[in-house]
């Protein structure tokens, strides 16, 4: 019988966790250069605080294989000397770690207020229409992943798109087709970069 007047009491209605562990993926190990980079950065923290390097360790993983897999989290845990759960806890919290493979170019369109005021919502719509994908999806060619992100801290150059680790500033909605073509043909060289790099202009 039910102890709750509005809730059925039956096994089917029991809360069931939907948490699924990341697929294991290929066995993972850093390349020698990345291992060296990790070993160097970990010394920036006290010897008993290696866990501070976990974000850096995950960035190295993502640099190497494009996303963070279960096997790589296990590897990071062994490097840091913490549990796999500790690593998963962090990897699932921060938005810049991808838990699944993504496209060659991840288009992170800022959607927060200042960018939205100058057309960021339309930029998302145009990219969606041009690639036939919704935010969060990767196009069939595997070249582009579209993600809506929150404030990138470049509100004076709205609307801003972060493409992998580079920036493209002042992307008007009508420029979207040319922007995508530029990435297809010229790659990251087609991006405006940060306007503060005056030496390169």
């Amino acid at each position: 019988m039910s102890f709750h007047p509005h809730m059925e009491y039956a096994p089917a209605r029991f809360h069931k966790s939907e948490r699924v562990l990341a697929d294991d993926g290929e066995t993972f190990a850093y390349t020698p250069e990345r291992q060296q980079a990790f070993d160097e950065v970990v010394t920036r923290y006290p010897a008993d605080r290696r866990k501070s390097a976990v974000l850096f360790a995950l960035y190295l993983v993502q640099q190497q294989q494009g996303y963070v897999s279960g096997a790589s989290m296990r590897f990071v845990a062994s490097q840091i000397g913490c549990s796999t759960a500790d690593v998963e806890d962090v990897a699932t919290y921060y938005t810049m770690f991808y838990r699944h493979p993504v496209g060659t170019y991840v288009l992170n369109v800022c959607r927060t207020l200042s960018c939205a005021l100058l057309g960021a919502e339309r930029v998302v719509e145009q990219i969606s229409a041009a690639l036939g994908i919704k935010p969060g999806e990767t196009d069939p060619s595997g070249m582009f992943t579209l993600i809506e992100v929150e404030c990138l801290g470049a509100c004076d150059r709205a609307p801003v798109v972060m493409v992998n680790d580079d920036w493209h500033e002042r992307l008007a909605p009508e420029q979207v087709p040319a922007f995508l073509d530029g990435l297809r043909t010229r790659g990251a060289a087609a991006l405006t970069g940060c306007h503060l790099h005056v030496e390169e202009k």
Binding site: K51, L55, Y59, Y94, M96
Partner: peptide
């Protein structure tokens, strides 16, 4: 020390937690 996308890391104790690898 590079963060990884979390507005909350701007709060001083959250920043410290993040710096500790949490």
């Amino acid at each position: 020390h590079r963060g990884a996308g979390a507005y909350e890391a701007g709060e001083e104790t959250a920043l410290i937690e993040s710096l500790e690898g949490k």
